[in-house]
Design a protein around this nucleic acid. Sequence first.
DNA 1: CTGAAAGCGCTTACAG
DNA 2: CTGAAAGCGCTTACAG
Lengths: 351, 351
Amino acid sequence: MHSNGAEKHAEKPNSGGGRRRPSGRVTLEDVARHAQVSTMTVSRALRDPSLVSPSVRERVQAAVAQLGYIPNRAASTLASARSKLIVVLVPSLSNAVFVETLAGVQDCVGPSGYQLLIGNTGYSPERQAELLQAYLSHAPDGFLVAGIDDSNAVRRHLAASGVPLVHMFDLTSTDEWSVGFSQRRAGYAIGKHLIARGARRPGFIAAQLDPRTMQRRAGYRRALREAGRDPGVEVLTKEPSSPALGGALLKDLLSRTPKCDAVFCCNDDLALGALFECQRLGIAVPRELAIVGFNDLPFAAVASPTITTVATPRYAVGFEAARMLLRIVDGEVPEQRRIDLGFELVVREST
Amino acid sequence: MHSNGAEKHAEKPNSGGGRRRPSGRVTLEDVARHAQVSTMTVSRALRDPSLVSPSVRERVQAAVAQLGYIPNRAASTLASARSKLIVVLVPSLSNAVFVETLAGVQDCVGPSGYQLLIGNTGYSPERQAELLQAYLSHAPDGFLVAGIDDSNAVRRHLAASGVPLVHMFDLTSTDEWSVGFSQRRAGYAIGKHLIARGARRPGFIAAQLDPRTMQRRAGYRRALREAGRDPGVEVLTKEPSSPALGGALLKDLLSRTPKCDAVFCCNDDLALGALFECQRLGIAVPRELAIVGFNDLPFAAVASPTITTVATPRYAVGFEAARMLLRIVDGEVPEQRRIDLGFELVVREST
DNA sequence: CTGAAAGCGCTTACAG
DNA sequence: CTGAAAGCGCTTACAG
């Protein structure tokens, strides 16, 4: 058998004789010629086989297989004004939370043939705005964004482009689409829990200080306030989270308030580091110090002691947000503009 | 000021009167009319400003800003046969190793304006083949793939497409491009280390069992063999890695060989779970049992005890592989076909 | 069920 | 430094 290239040249008489720009690719036209039908018919047979007769269908499929035809998305995007591309913006990929969210998105859109363009904003609103802008050139069918952007300029741009957008994690006002849960209530639940467990001097450590973290903190503080406690000592830093940082922040916290008997770590990575630091310092958890994390990452359930935390529906957030977006893209109008997926306080040995 | 849409309609006299397919988008033509030049000139001014006169440059920039012009990548891809898209295939995103590799790739290609299409193969060669095939329709300028695919059918497809591919992590034969390090030698280094530390009955636990894991194992076994030891007890499972699994595998290992005094966990997640399991079982690490992990994930340096492991150059693998690919795309021919970035055994408290 | 024409929004290849 | 023509490989909108 000849190579495809040779075969093609033999069959394509360089029609017209004008200046061509041969790409070397097998095109719809090659398939059409091979199957003895028009390009339109091949296009139909490929997009929706029920649109053509069985015999044509077979011939086209055979030609596609034999020539090794691969459709050119750029061409179909240009002609149809539909890219089958969905842009997903997340603040970080090192954070397992967003990776699972992406998995949810992927699992939802995969079957429909959509592909994902993943952007990492690095928790920066400016970067988020830049990325939204940049990705517009791909003519995506929709945007899925974790973390609200405050820039109105970008919003106007997006609105003008007409590309729909669904927010993930943040529950927005009802004039926008969003899927998430209440960070504030989750923080509140943790505060209540610590108090119920008898914590007298709870502390709070947090990193990154993104809006979601600050909402958790607000809920947590409200719980303390309602119980008649003051906010207690807090150690905050804008640095990115890591187990190492968790250990450092805990040490800092203890140096400021040695009688601290409980600590809410704004996420599980910090909690893991705090736990190891306690082991190193010989502090008994939870007897001397209770530890709470956030997210319920895989290690939380098997640490020693196991870590009390809040299980967040991150996979579901991605899946449901994608489902909502797909419906909007298809012209439907979802019943709810905001979907609250809730959360679950998982009480374990560390409190 | 009018909306862009209104302005556009006023300026565009629907030339020809033929059937148009108005997309509502601002196009190069709109910018050209606004700046009083041809579309070609606008195209040049945008791609390489030095190609046009200063005054034209300014007018074009002003028009772009005023109309909010966003180039259509589908159109430029189709016309230029260059997509500025690079496909990256990784086995998993839940594995921090590959996320850091992606970060390296991103940091390398970002400045050149390339965008990434990220595919998750889930450690499946079949899925990898499917994805390579599927992504070909985006006419990517290059492929970056972690994990070798054995399917020849796909290789032929790729070769026929002419899209260059660089392997990451696996150092391939010299007729292909690759950037990575020797998993085998890394495993060997661990074996030697455990023996040097006086381990008498070392065990091995592993999950996923991807090719890289098996190469580490092979190197590890060679070290034992050279020291005159038998391979010792091994507990292997195809399940995906997790800290929970690490604990379970360790228990399994100890039940089979209670006198085991060291364990090589094929990655840090497993090692973390094993460490916690030891704490739970009251086994002193390293006195009663030495633990070695692999990858040097962030928690390894702060665990209690800190975990001995092998630091892998995953970020650099992504960065250098991307750099190699970019050069190939630009028609250059890198001096080396395979780049070995090495690894580092990091000895800590757990051994 | 099938097809000829026109167009999507850019860039290449020429020409001046 | 600038531009008119043609083309990239598909799909839309008609027509039969």
